[in-house]
Design a protein around this nucleic acid. Structure first.
Lengths: 227, 227
DNA sequence: CTTGCTTTCAAACAAGCGTTTGAATAGATT
DNA sequence: AATCTATTCAAACGCTTGTTTGAAAGCAAG
């Protein structure tokens, strides 16, 4: 029963500790304490501290891939809905509290302060999402828009989503912790989707009175925030 | 001549090293090596490693405050111009390469992974900016908008600016380093200002043909990106 | 029971860390 | 010149780090 169980326990503990203390501050003794294993277990099952870290990153990545999948859209669904669903999925991946919360933490820490493992995280996790978003945007933006401009629009959308994870301590302090706690994923999705759709002409701007709405330049009606 | 010169040199070196290695990874020996000072200088002029870090943060903050000041607007300038100037100023503070680049790095590192010093950074540096932005937005957004919604709009704007500093490694990898290098502060200002102004109804949406522009709900004409 | 293999464990290792010390040095004051 | 004070320096302190070791423990097969 304790066969390769310690290996798993150490890997799990390593993920947790690395996630909330960073590579440098995390100690092997702390990890093994949390895992209930001997210090030498790290050398026995993994080779190094570094190898253990890479293994934890890989584990997090694999486990996270299928957790919150991108939705499959039926042909004919309006592009604005694609964008809204993308935002919703992205926010869930970033913020939603699921069982091993350290998966998400560890990956995002890799993105904020890149180490050796970040290259793989970008290629396997980030780039696929970027491609989906790019597909959605090229469908929505007019034909004359250059690729660089499309990237900027994509960055603007992604940046809004990332903000709420990365700057939680600051923004909650600014806004007030009480109000900040009430920012659910759904509410944030509503806001970011409407803000972004309005920016590219698929929803009514935030300050525009209800009557003056102008439709987008594709076939579908510029739905506001309703899903 | 070498009077309190070593103090300055150590403080400067500390800022640099802390900025690009973080608090934990930075070593006093490394800092003093860079400063050309003895190890004991840290204990002599500052007390601790921690006190040295706080001193470096304070130094960075003070030096940065007057470096890129907020513009003073003549009464009567349209609110959209205020917002554009705010974005421009914020981007300059974040991205512009000035002499001691570590000032900016150190402060932003504090925001990404807060330590004890982050509280002061927020209060002295972030909150004033937030108040300026809030003032601009309450002027632009309709009266019915709640305070929370105004915060969300502010976050959306700030998030776009922060993105380009924090995620430079990832986004440059995604977009291609060549194209990324050509994203000047002015170009980013144009994009973010137009995106955000369109979102709140003060500029033409990105996908809307030129003719269909609708004016905002205040007195001024909804100027697009021109400054 | 003995053998062989895998896994655990306490102990120690060298290296690096932040910190302290006490003497050496320099400069100004008397 | 002598005294005092401020500053520098090499050396060491105690501690924690990652890593290694060799023995002990468990366990299946002969």
């Amino acid at each position: 029963m304790d066969n390769d169980d310690t290996r798993k326990r150490v890997l799990e503990a390593a993920g947790r500790v690395f996630a909330d203390r960073g590579y440098e501050s995390a100690t092997i003794r702390g990890i093994c304490d949390l895992a209930g294993a001997n210090i030498a277990a790290v050398n026995y099952y993994f080779k190094d501290k570094k190898s253990l870290y890479l293994a934890a990153c890989l584990e997090a990545q694999c486990a996270r891939e299928g957790a919150v999948p991108m939705p499959e859209w039926a042909p004919g669904t309006p592009a604005a809905e694609h964008l809204r669903d993308f935002i919703h999925t992205f926010l869930r991946r970033l913020l939603e509290d699921e069982r091993p919360a350290w998966h998400r933490q560890l990956m995002l820490r890799e993105l904020a302060t890149p180490t050796e493992a970040s290259g793989q995280v970008v290629e396997d996790y980030i780039r696929p999402m970027a491609m989906v978003l790019k597909g959605i945007l090229t469908e929505m933006l007019p034909a004359g828009v250059t690729e660089d401009e499309a990237f900027l629009v994509g960055f603007s959308i992604v940046a809004q989503c990332l903000f709420y994870h990365l700057h939680e301590p600051i923004s909650s302090r600014l806004m007030g912790e009480e109000a900040y706690r009430q920012l659910t994923v759904d509410r944030l999705t509503d806001h970011i989707a409407r803000f972004s759709l309005a920016a590219i002409g698929y929803a009514r701007p935030l300050s525009k009175p209800a009557g003056e709405m102008v439709s987008g330049n594709t076939g579908d009606r510029g739905a506001a925030t309703t899903h």
